[in-house]
Write a protein that binds this DNA or RNA. Structure first.
Length: 378
RNA sequence: GGGCAGGUACCGAAGUGGUCAAACGGGGCAGACUGUAAAUCUGCUGGGCUCCGCCCUACGGAGGUUCGAAACCUUCCCUGCCCA
């Protein structure tokens, strides 16, 4: 059986790494960006389009998929891959983020989190154990532990209590994960999630304790929750200094193209974020020339294509003027084309990062890219 | 020709003596969005300024009543419907 993660190269001038994740649903070159498909769908994109864009792995969400369609349906169809017609790797988030974002609808205790469904108000209970169980029913290749993501800002005393509980939850997840079999015959891997708020010493302490629990991979959670980017970079650095080099590191929920390059430079291997898809639906495009809001009047008569440097159907075949029209007219195709382009851009970004780590000029390329993004030439 | 109902900002539409530069929609113009309660949300939308306040022009046109009018009166113009 092949190793889950293999490190192929570490950059000479930074902590950037080139690696490969091997799952039973395929290989994932790292650094990688993972499009978010919360409810078993990357919004506005078809699975065949994701193949065409060469997305290597996508996300699903335990909380959302548990509420709808529910575990029974998921098992009936033989897991999320078969249900949604996607045979590449899937990572499912645990619902930890929903403990954070749906804070008015839940109550946390040592046992777990009691939720009121945002769909119908019904009560549900998430424990570290059942969250692992649900993810086994999903059959996700990468399973995330249940955690509590502390809000920003948060008192140190609160963060300490919260992270101590998250650590106990992580341990319970691990125990449950190890004692139960997968349901569909393929391997699943379990990631721990680091917490510690904005306190570097707490992050260090948590990370060390989490490493002792020996997960297949390590996520950094609780960042990009409103803090300045510099703090996020600093804390990422703190964590990647400690994390074992032979395991993948995943910076959860991040981020902007800039954030991703900064993360890669600090030794992060995996990223996910709703930004490319959500912002696409709201008319913001990420391009190699900077961000553009396609709804702006200045694009009304623009003959330019979205981005000549990105190789995707959406990026090269339509004028900005046409895409703007689709948005203004509220056509569904607007969301589809914009989402396709933004995902293509994010995947282009990490692919180029990999190539430049390989050729050894990552830091220089990264600097050029940041200059480009900041100059916003459009 | 007669009767009735109307003419309000880019459009639709409230408002019938002061708290009205005028509710609310739409449209338009910007902005936000980071492990998705998001095809969502926020702001602005007569002009000018020394811009948390002031000045000018404004509710079909003109004239009038009044301390004060988009609102009341007179008259003219226009629109819709009905009857001849």
């Amino acid at each position: 059986m092949s190793t889950f993660f293999s490190l192929e190269k570490t950059d000479a001038n930074s902590k950037a790494r080139l690696g490969k994740l091997t799952t039973d649903h395929g290989e994932i070159p790292t650094p990688i960006f993972m499009p978010v498909g919360t409810q078993g769908s990357v919004k506005a994109l078809q699975q065949r389009e994701l193949y065409e864009l060469d997305a290597k792995i996508i996300l699903g969400n335990t909380y959302h998929l548990y509420l709808r369609p529910g575990t029974e349906t998921m098992e009936h169809f033989g897991g999320l891959h078969k249900f949604m017609g996607w045979d590449r790797p899937i990572l499912t988030d645990s619902g930890g983020y929903q403990i954070f974002s749906l804070k008015e609808l839940r109550k946390i205790t040592e046992q777990g989190a009691e939720f009121r469904s945002h769909l119908d108000g019904s009560k549900h209970f998430f424990s570290p154990e059942n969250v692992v169980g649900i993810q086994k029913s999903h059959g996700s290749d990468i399973v995330m532990v249940l955690d509590e993501c502390a809000p920003y800002p948060a008192e140190e005393s609160y963060v300490i209590k919260s992270m101590q509980m998250s650590l106990r939850w992580a341990e319970r997840c691990k125990k449950e994960f190890d004692k139960t079999e997968g349901k569909y015959g393929h391997r699943q891997f379990l990631f721990g999630i680091g917490q510690g708020g904005m306190y570097a010493d707490l992050r260090k302490q948590y990370t060390k304790q989490m490493i002792d629990l020996d997960f297949d991979g390590y996520a950094i959670g609780g960042l990009s929750v409103g803090e300045p980017a510099e703090i996020m970079y600093e804390l990422t650095d703190v964590c990647t200094d400690i994390l074992p080099t032979d395991k993948p590191r995943y910076l959860m929920g991040v981020g902007t193209p800039e954030n991703i390059l900064e993360g890669i430079e600090r030794g992060i291997d995996m990223f996910d974020c709703v930004m490319p898809t959500r912002n696409a639906r709201n008319g913001q495009l990420f391009t190699t020339h900077g961000k553009i809001n396609i709804k702006n009047a200045k694009y009304k008569l623009s003959d330019n294509i979205i981005d000549e440097n990105i190789d995707s159907y959406a990026s090269n075949n339509f004028s900005l003027g046409y895409l703007r029209h689709l948005f203004v007219a509220n056509e569904i195709l607007a969301l589809q084309l914009a989402s396709m382009h933004n995902i293509a851009f994010y995947l282009w970004l990490v692919k180029n990062a990999r190539e430049h780590i390989k050729t050894g000029d990552f830091t220089q390329w990264k600097k050029e890219m940041l200059d480009k993004f900041n100059s916003n030439m459009l």
